[in-house]
Design a protein around this nucleic acid. Structure first.
Lengths: 193, 193
DNA sequence: GAATTTGTACTGACCGGTCAGTTTAAACGG
DNA sequence: CCGTTTAAACTGACCGGTCAGTACAAATTC
């Protein structure tokens, strides 16, 4: 794949992400995506088989970025805090991707449900890795299962980030992060209380 | 409004909720809703001004039910636990409504953003009422703002309920409720630790 | 109390616009 | 040259919304 096509695909991802995140995959037209990307409609169909294929590629692309960042947080001292921070940062940087994900992830027999289940597993398994360390160190309350807690943390961070940007944009990222950490630490301290 | 139209509107709500929750408002056709409800297409336009108006009425209807249940939990002994329980029960009973809400609530300039902001406030303010009691009793960790915590609890319960039904349907409602309460109690005990 | 009117609820064929996807011929660029 | 992009016209299925007409029960009239 030439540098030229890579650039084109990137433009298409940016444009599609913005529009699809804002208004939903179904109600955005291919012509609009082409216009937003400053590209001819034919180019889209030269690079992707269909509108759906473009969205699916977009999903993969976004999750790849997120997964990469989360993995980069694995070596930190307080790795859970680093993970939370990375995740909030990602959602702050790509709010439209959060909107896209949240509106498709739990759609029961949706067209992207299979793909999204896999992608969700990618992320949740990374979170689970960090959780497991806490668990092994006995720093999780009894009765909390790692799998459940991981999925809950991922989902919770997603909605908190969205709610922050949509309904409380005046709050700083640091404030939000501290709130979340307060909650997470609350959980962790439970066993010691 | 006659009993007949009430019944018709109920049928339309049921049908629309099912289809829209599953596949998204934009990709469900009016003909499909009519067919699902066992009603002619014209009937929809007799009872509602437009497809959008139908969805908006559906949103109001659903939030009204949820708000009613949450208010009924206000008198309980452990009112926060009762509230969590009511909320999980509601999402279990109307999963499609959760899917609809989650996919529209954070769509920035979406067509229902204004309506949804109001509806969100309805629910969050009820949660806030319960939270305030905890706060006044000094049972919330320092630094946690009631407003933030309420919004977070609402959003978290929503995604946990969806994730439960879609990805972990084998878990019982009691298990999920206990997990959530463990988390909430963890938070509450934080100050005392 | 039969005939007629009125109001409400509902029907479904139809219309006009929209949109994913196609086609083509020509230009561009490395 | 060949892979890529452009511009523009075109197709055809699909879909939101309309509208003339039907069904029917409750008044109203004689």
């Amino acid at each position: 794949m030439s540098a030229r096509t890579t650039a084109t695909k990137q433009k298409l991802f940016d444009a599609a992400l913005k529009l699809v995140g804002e208004r939903g995959a179904a109600s955005v037209t291919v012509d609009e995506i082409a216009a937003e990307a400053g590209v001819a409609k034919g180019t889209i169909y030269y690079n992707f088989a269909s509108k759906d294929a473009l969205v699916e590629a977009l999903l993969h692309h976004g999750v790849e970025i997120l997964a990469g960042r989360l993995r980069s947080a694995e070596g930190s001292e307080d790795s859970l805090e680093a993970l939370v921070d990375e995740m909030l940062g990602f959602w702050a940087e790509y709010p439209a991707f959060g909107q896209l994900l949240v509106s498709e992830l739990w759609r029961t027999p949706g067209q992207w449900h299979g793909t999204l289940s896999l992608l969700r597993d990618d992320i949740v398994s990374i979170v689970r890795g960090q959780m497991k360390r806490l668990s092994d160190a006995g720093r999780l309350p009894e009765g909390v299962e790692v799998g459940t807690a991981s999925a809950a943390l991922f989902g919770t961070l997603l909605v908190i980030a969205l709610d922050w940007q949509v309904f409380q944009p005046e709050r700083s990222r640091a404030e939000v992060r501290d709130s979340v950490m307060l909650l997470v630490r609350g959980m962790r301290s439970a066993r010691q209380s």
